[in-house]
Structure formats: C-alpha cells, structure tokens
C-alpha cells in the first residue's frame, strides 16, 4: 500500500484515494497541423516504460481531485518525490539527463 504525499493537500494519504494516470511531462505538439502520422502516433501511444525511475501523473481522485506528479522507482516501488503540475522533478535518472541534453542540442 502506497502512502502518497499530495502536494496540494500537503498530507500523506493512502493509495486508494489516488489513481495513476501514466507518464508525466509529455509535451503536446506545438504545431498540431504540421504533425506527421508518426509524430501523432508517438505523442498518443508511445510511452517510456523504464525499469527504474519513472515520472508519472497521479490524481487525488477522492481528495482534492487535483493532478500532480510523482517520481517513483518502478522496481522497488519507492516514491522519491511528489511535486505540483508545471514543476520539474528534483530526482532524475541518468537516461533522463541524457535525453534532456539531446533535446537541447
């Protein structure tokens, strides 16, 4: 049973109050009209599926009903941090950093 800290309620609550909503930080295509089928497909369906650190969206479904982000290890299930929408994670893995650098280049 997860004990999850809601960054809006600022309290730890039990897992059953929450729902997992999948990968976080997926950028919506900036210019949707110019997207190829491949870009749309990737945006809609292709997901990171790491064995290790994962940034994901959860919703406090029967609490404040707000969406927020969680960094969690998918192998140990340890929750490293929770943070509000729009914020960036503090705990990141090596592959995250590499991808950010690649994107910057």
């Amino acid at each position: 049973m997860f004990y999850i800290h809601c960054p809006y309620c600022c309290e730890y609550r039990e897992e059953e109050e929450f729902h997992a909503k999948g990968q976080a930080h997926i950028a919506r295509p900036a210019d949707p009209d110019q997207c190829s089928d491949e870009e749309w497909g990737t945006y809609l369906y292709f997901r990171k599926n790491p064995r290790g650190l994962h940034h994901e969206i959860w919703v406090h479904a029967i609490g404040c009903r707000k969406f927020f982000n969680v960094t969690r290890d998918t192998q140990t299930y340890e929750i490293k941090e929770t943070y509000k929408m729009g914020e960036q994670p503090k705990v990141t893995s090596v592959s995250d950093t590499l991808e950010t650098e690649e994107a910057a280049q």
Binding site: M1, A20, E56, T74, Y77
Partner: peptide, 14 residues
C-alpha cells in the same frame, strides 16, 4: 492490473 507501471512482480492489496 494495478494502475501504475511496475516491474515488482507483486500486486497491491487494494
């Protein structure tokens, strides 16, 4: 299934 991604080969109690 549990709603979250996981590789733990164990399920949740709820």
């Amino acid at each position: 299934i549990d709603g979250y991604n996981g590789y733990g080969q164990r399920g949740s109690y709820p």
